[in-house]
Design a protein around this nucleic acid. Sequence first.
DNA 1: AAAACATTTCGTATATTTGCGAAATAATGA
DNA 2: TCATTATTTCGCAAATATACGAAATGTTTT
Lengths: 117, 117
Amino acid sequence: MSDNLEFTQEVQEIARISKALSHPVRVYILQKLSKMNSCCYSGDLIEELPIGRSTLSQHLKELKYAGLIQGEINPPYIKYCINRGNWEKAKKLLDDFLNDNQSGDFSCYETKTVIHS
Amino acid sequence: MSDNLEFTQEVQEIARISKALSHPVRVYILQKLSKMNSCCYSGDLIEELPIGRSTLSQHLKELKYAGLIQGEINPPYIKYCINRGNWEKAKKLLDDFLNDNQSGDFSCYETKTVIHS
DNA sequence: AAAACATTTCGTATATTTGCGAAATAATGA
DNA sequence: TCATTATTTCGCAAATATACGAAATGTTTT
């Protein structure tokens, strides 16, 4: 893809956050961390997931890069938690995106054939 | 990735929907269709986007496959609209995921060094 | 200083995604 | 029927994502 400048900041941000959420392992990690308001060690997670340590590390790195989690050094462990501030921002961004569909009339379902796939 | 059975249906669904939202072109299309409660022809979209027709067609196909839009034959055009039912489902799924972070205490920010990247 | 530990980085292999132009499809209008 | 029109499918190339094991990192304990 070439010309990301054609897209608004908002559109690019939504795509960026969504990409971070686009893998089951990453969703699992975020769900765990956000649902329980808890933190996790990499070693805790690896026991619950069907992937190798280095692969988990990469997923954690991606989530960090996306700003959704943060790691705290707690030797010899690293404790991972949700990055609350960015999590709230992501929440708002996606929420607005998903809910901006209230107004106007429906002009969609007039024609005969509807194709779903 | 091998063993998706390790993940709950919910986790897999969230990842699946997020993947559909993980490209700016697809976010743009969905934003346009959902915000205005409108429908679009492929030809309308191509004029606003920095991609070729066949590429747009693939993105539309992906969104159809994800269930988020539907196409109606309206010869010689195909009119695309949001798939309201699935859009609502996706909304609920992501909303629940993003908002299950209310309870409990914070035990995260005790230790010294915090790494953000 | 060396061993032990949790985790990350590196190198690499494979799979998936993204993109394009050319050809195919399917309906309409001349 | 033949050309036109809108869109999709095909075949391919390039980029990105995913996964792994081995080696590296940094800290604590012995």
